[in-house]
Amino acid sequence: MPNKKKPSSLSRRQFIKGVSTGVAGTIATTKLARALPIEKLEKAAPPEGHLPLELKVNGKPYQLYVEPQTTLVEVLRNELQLTGTKVSCNHGECGACTVLLDGKAVYSCHILALDAQGKSVTTIEGLLNGEELHPIQKAFIKKDGYQCGFCTPGQIMSTQALLLKNPNPTKEEILDGLSGNLCRCGAYPKIIESVEEAAKVK
């Protein structure tokens, strides 16, 4: 497991050390509601009841303080303002919040932010290269793999997880791979075509 060497429950000292050797340059450029510049982190005690969280989102390292009950999607949407990730059921029962955690699809609404400690998160925004769409995203446009679009980021992230693991899925494997994402509009036939198209293009 990637986080094995690095105990997830870092002491403040360890945390700050990790920060100052690694990613100090990046932190200033991130726009975080609660992510403090490094000097302040050293001095400021964390807000009461908060714990430090260090994770990578779409390739960028972030450090912030969270309450332990904070879910990953709350960090993504509220703190990092990555609103492409949606919340629809908030119980791991629909897939709208799907993101990749170390390359695997998970429900970001149903995982504690602290469980992403030291891990790498990819959201729908992370698939783009600047303004350039990822081939999967293009495939969803080409094949009309959506209607209202609210579940679409989740569908696309599940497609990404599937194709990372299995670049040439069969129809059955596509159905399995996307089965954890509801589409209330019922765009499934076109979603299936979109995944097939994405697999072909990749």
């Binding site: 990555l82 925004e125 446009i141």
Partner: peptide
């Protein structure tokens, strides 16, 4: 293909939510 396709697949479509 839809005019609003880019917004919907990129996550940039802004819903009331």
């Amino acid at each position: 293909t839809r005019l609003d396709g880019y917004d919907k697949v990129s996550g940039s479509a802004t819903y009331a939510f």
